[in-house]
Amino acid sequence: MPDPAIKTAVTPQASVTTSDVPLRADYISVRNFNFFYNGVHQVLFDLNLDIPERQVTAFIGPSGCGKSTLLRNINRMNDLIDGIRHEGDIFIDGHSIFDPDIEVISLRKRIGMVFQKSNPFPKSIYENIVYSLRVAGRHRKSELDEVVERSLHAAALWDEVKDRLHQSAFGLSGGQMQRLCIARAIANQPEIILMDEPCSALDPIATGKIEDLIHELKKQFTIVIVTHNMQQAARVSDRTAFFYLGKLIEYNSTEAIFMNPINSQTEAYVSGRFG
């Protein structure tokens, strides 16, 4: 069980003042994790990995390797699917996310998520961002205004949309929409941001902006990103995990994975000679 002092250190508000508290190297900790669809079809095999606090960790691997499945287990998004089953455990800051005392909704409030296809709600830009506050029952206008401005600044979108906050989010470009989704994900001050191929539908310029943004956000958030784009993983991440057929093949610093991988499958994948 973790030290309570460390617990307080990871809430974003506290972290600003107590920056001398060391960051956890096992902020998200996956232990002997197995995962099954339809009760029997196993997609993740005995995974063990520690994701460090306030760094970017990339999951790479060919399609169907289970990287997205693992990501979606971290905020229990997979709960939506019928017939799933897991063994082992995932800890966030020392606490099991499968603890029956933890409500899945309160878990998800601590974890922002950005999806492959940008999915703004059919509402105004403003309402998109304050959505997570509204569903948490916070409606005070001054607070919402402040959150909108802060989140849009953090998502490097404020200057582009500040004059049309109350217009539909669908008027934005693809890259802007995705940055809006990031602003939405960080609006309620989560601790972790999960990104499921956030740039796969974007052009290189928009992708570049998102990557720069990720680089900025890691000062404040622990980021886990799933990506098909190996250059992207190399550019934005501090640590990289390579998955193949539901198994964790290699997990190391991004530098080691891309310059001197230990496993020959990793080597083949990152050098594009796979399969």
Binding site: N75, M77, L80, I105, S106, R108, K109, I111, G112, M113, F115, K117, N119, P120, F121, P122, Y131, S132, R134, V135, A136, C181, R184, A185, N188
Partner: peptide
């Protein structure tokens, strides 16, 4: 996507149905 986005924001199922 919209449903998942809402749930990921910490909304309950009923809130998702109601608001979105």
């Amino acid at each position: 996507g919209v449903r998942e986005g809402s749930l990921a924001c910490g909304a309950s199922k009923w809130q998702t149905i109601q608001y979105l």
